[in-house]
């Protein structure tokens, strides 16, 4: 008796997933190329002045990520060993790329409360 309703909800989920997929595609075409084009224009302008954009430093990555979700926590608040643990926690929680989290860790340890 209830089977059809289950089938129905499965169909609905299928449709939902398709819609989500479409949304994902729409979003990626609306936002990403737009942002990309703007960024390109900016870098073009910058290229005229400065030669090439250098790799982001640990300090820059720290200020890029570490107050996105909460007020920033200062390097001196923890010891080097604690930072290593907390950065692992944050790397997993915030899905940070491996190299970036290692560079942030180095920055925090170098300026840590020991």
């Amino acid at each position: 008796m209830n089977r059809p309703s289950s089938l129905k909800s499965r169909l609905w989920t299928g449709a939902g997933v398709a819609v989500l997929g479409a949304l994902l595609y729409a979003l990626s075409s609306v936002f990403v190329p737009g942002a990309g084009a703007k960024a390109e224009k900016k870098t073009e302008k910058r290229v005229e002045k400065k030669p090439e954009k250098k790799k982001l430093s640990g300090a820059e990555l720290y200020s890029m990520h570490c107050n996105r979700c909460h007020p920033e926590r200062y390097p001196t608040e923890r010891t080097a060993a604690q930072w290593k643990t907390i950065l692992l926690h944050m790397r997993v929680r915030a899905n940070l790329p491996a190299e970036q989290s290692q560079m942030i860790l180095k920055y925090l340890q170098d300026n840590s409360g020991r």
């Binding site: 289950s6 989920t13 939902g16």
Partner: peptide, 9 residues
């Protein structure tokens, strides 16, 4: 009974 699906997006 496995009759119903729950989904969220």
């Amino acid at each position: 009974a496995g009759q119903h699906l729950w989904s969220a997006g």
